[in-house]
């Protein structure tokens, strides 16, 4: 597996976690817990954005593996 494919996989898992946390946050009734969940989905979102940027660089460097 090339680096870009690995990063893509990590990115996908991260997005999955983010979505799970968001569902938890929306059904959580405890305001404190809800706030913690919301705050941390935001943080993960930052990471996801950074990784996406890096991924586009990687794909530019290894165009033959683009889309894998």
């Amino acid at each position: 597996m090339t680096i870009s494919a690995q990063v893509r996989q990590t990115l996908a898992s991260l997005k999955g976690v983010q979505a799970t946390l968001e569902t938890f946050a929306s059904s959580e009734e405890n305001q404190e817990a809800k706030a913690i969940l919301r705050r941390n989905t935001q943080r993960i979102n930052h990471v996801v954005r950074d990784m996406e940027k890096r991924l586009s660089v990687l794909e530019f460097e290894e165009p033959q593996y683009k889309g894998f």
Binding site: I3, Q6, T10, L14, G16, V17, L21, R54
Partner: peptide, 29 residues
């Protein structure tokens, strides 16, 4: 599952940070 996946992602990031040779990518990871 969500907890375990997060831990895995964090470990992955550390691995990439060690693997990359570009300083700015390393910093990002």
């Amino acid at each position: 599952l969500a907890y375990a996946t997060m831990k895995k992602c964090q470990a992955d990031c550390e691995l990439y940070a060690l693997g990359t040779k570009q300083p700015e990518a390393k910093k990002m990871y």
